[in-house]
């Protein structure tokens, strides 16, 4: 079985220019904050936003160079603390592109479920965007994977 047979195809997405306020309102009623793919108008995946990004909001990490920096050693204090939120002024316009992660883990849609599961486990991720040559086609969660396995057994 392949990833695209079990993934969630109907995905809520935002654009880089969506405001933080819109994003927050969009997901206010969710029980947990989901992994939100950020796509351009043509559906090309350019970033993701998750709960941690909301906490890392006052960091200069929202750029290509920021991503490069993150891999280099800098034993510094905890990056995602609630204190970061104290720096935000409510009247400042914050866009999704200011907080999204631009370096992230994705899987291709034609990957086998076993391979996808093993990669997610190694990366300690429970949800991951699914792409076809860089364009978003779905989202894969651990739930989808487990259901996929049971479906394969004919139990569902």
């Amino acid at each position: 079985m392949l990833v695209n047979e079990v993934m969630l195809k109907d995905v809520l997405t935002v654009q880089p220019t969506t405001t933080l306020t819109t994003l927050l309102k969009l997901f206010k009623d969710f029980h947990t904050f989901p992994l939100v793919p950020v796509v351009e108008e043509n559906n090309r995946l350019v970033g993701i936003v998750d709960l941690r990004d909301l906490l890392k909001i006052s960091q200069p990490y929202n750029s290509v160079s920021g991503d490069l920096l993150r891999t280099l050693i800098s034993p510094e204090e905890e990056k995602d603390t609630l204190q970061n939120l104290a720096f935000i002024r409510s009247d400042k316009l914050i866009l999704v592109k200011d907080i999204m992660e631009t370096s992230f883990f994705v899987v291709e849609e034609d990957l086998s479920l076993e391979k996808a599961y093993s990669l997610m486990k190694l990366n300690q991720k429970e949800k991951v965007p699914v792409v076809r040559k860089g364009y978003l086609v779905g989202i894969l969660t651990l739930t989808d994977l487990v259901f996929g396995f049971f479906k394969e057994k004919g139990m569902i």
Partner: peptide
């Protein structure tokens, strides 16, 4: 990075510096 973050600097200088 710590200083850039603390003072919420942004612009060409910050981008070049980080790169």
């Amino acid at each position: 990075v710590a200083i850039v973050r603390e003072y919420k600097a942004e612009g060409p200088l910050t981008q070049t510096l980080l790169g």
